[in-house]
Computed example of a mutant assay.
Amino acid sequence: METLGAILSHAAAGWLDALALRLDVAQASGGLIGHTAAILVAVSACVSILVGRSVVLAVNRMRRGGMVFVMVLNFVTLVLTYALLGLLVWVAGTLVIGVRVPTEEVVWAVLWACSPLVLGFAIAIPVLGTAIDRALSLWSLLILWSIIGDLYATSLLVSGAIALATFLAVWLLSAVYTPLLARARDLLWRRATGRPLYDSARYLLEQAGIEGSEADLDGAAWLVEPDRSRRGRHR
């Protein structure tokens, strides 16, 4: 319990320091507690983003099992995205600044840049959701800027240039691999369960056309029966 308390306290302190752009990278990312705290922030960010997208998930009638499945994959994708960001920062720092910082230290440190995404639930606010999403991304960029400056003890101009370049590079790469991961996710779920990840009216119509039987639509036949009875009364 003491260890859990220490991790939670470390994560909360690091999160607040990151949001305030005063994160002590060596202290926040050092040791097992620092690594676990960084992962905890990433998990919280993933859960918060899923809460923010809950409206879309509800409209698509996602089942509880599907929700857990998506949450796990979103967590993995988020961690991998920021791990890639850390790797790019390490490459840029080594080539541009000429300072060799251990790769794992950079990756663990950069995970703190996702701290603003813990507030991702706010993207569910109507009208303001898109603006909030962009503001959180900008906030993450500013934190990354401060982290690079601390890691490499370089000027604001150089650290800002590296932060912006690596952030844009990850954004471009994610635009390529995110659709591929989404298709792989949907296919994996379909193969494992025999059903699509998202139930929708379009899916019901496709199933009706393929199977040729309303009984195969898992209860959707009642949507059609009333129409048949009304047609019978009009005859």
Score class of each variant (00 low, 15 high):
2 E>C: 04
3 T>N: 11
4 L>W: 14
7 I>F: 05
9 S>C: 09
9 S>K: 14
9 S>A: 13
11 A>S: 11
11 A>E: 06
12 A>Q: 06
12 A>E: 10
12 A>P: 00
17 D>S: 13
17 D>V: 04
19 L>N: 08
20 A>S: 15
20 A>Q: 14
21 L>W: 11
22 R>Y: 09
23 L>K: 00
23 L>T: 01
24 D>V: 07
25 V>N: 02
28 A>I: 04
30 G>Y: 05
31 G>C: 07
33 I>M: 09
34 G>V: 00
35 H>D: 08
37 A>K: 01
37 A>S: 12
45 A>G: 08
47 V>K: 02
48 S>L: 02
54 S>R: 09
56 V>D: 14
56 V>Q: 12
57 L>H: 12
59 V>A: 12
63 R>S: 15
64 R>S: 15
65 G>A: 03
65 G>T: 05
67 M>G: 14
70 V>S: 06
72 V>M: 08
73 L>G: 01
74 N>C: 15
74 N>M: 10
74 N>P: 04
74 N>V: 06
75 F>R: 03
77 T>W: 10
77 T>L: 13
79 V>Q: 02
80 L>R: 07
82 Y>A: 02
83 A>G: 13
83 A>V: 09
84 L>D: 02
87 L>T: 13
88 L>R: 01
88 L>H: 02
90 W>L: 00
94 T>H: 09
94 T>L: 12
97 I>S: 04
98 G>Y: 06
100 R>I: 13
101 V>A: 02
103 T>L: 15
105 E>G: 15
106 V>F: 06
108 W>F: 06
109 A>L: 03
111 L>D: 00
115 S>C: 03
116 P>R: 01
118 V>A: 10
120 G>L: 06
121 F>G: 01
123 I>T: 10
129 G>N: 03
131 A>C: 06
137 S>M: 14
138 L>I: 12
138 L>W: 12
140 S>Q: 10
140 S>H: 02
145 W>Y: 09
146 S>G: 02
147 I>S: 01
149 G>C: 01
150 D>L: 01
150 D>F: 04
151 L>E: 02
153 A>H: 14
157 L>M: 11
157 L>D: 09
158 V>P: 01
160 G>V: 02
161 A>Q: 06
165 A>W: 05
168 L>K: 05
168 L>Q: 08
169 A>D: 05
171 W>G: 14
172 L>P: 00
172 L>G: 13
177 Y>G: 03
178 T>F: 12
185 R>W: 10
187 L>V: 12
190 R>S: 13
192 A>K: 09
193 T>Y: 06
196 P>F: 04
196 P>G: 02
197 L>R: 00
197 L>E: 01
199 D>T: 07
200 S>V: 00
200 S>A: 01
202 R>A: 15
207 Q>G: 00
211 E>R: 14
214 E>G: 08
215 A>C: 02
217 L>G: 10
218 D>R: 10
219 G>L: 03
219 G>V: 08
224 V>S: 14
225 E>A: 14
228 R>D: 13
230 R>E: 13
233 R>I: 09
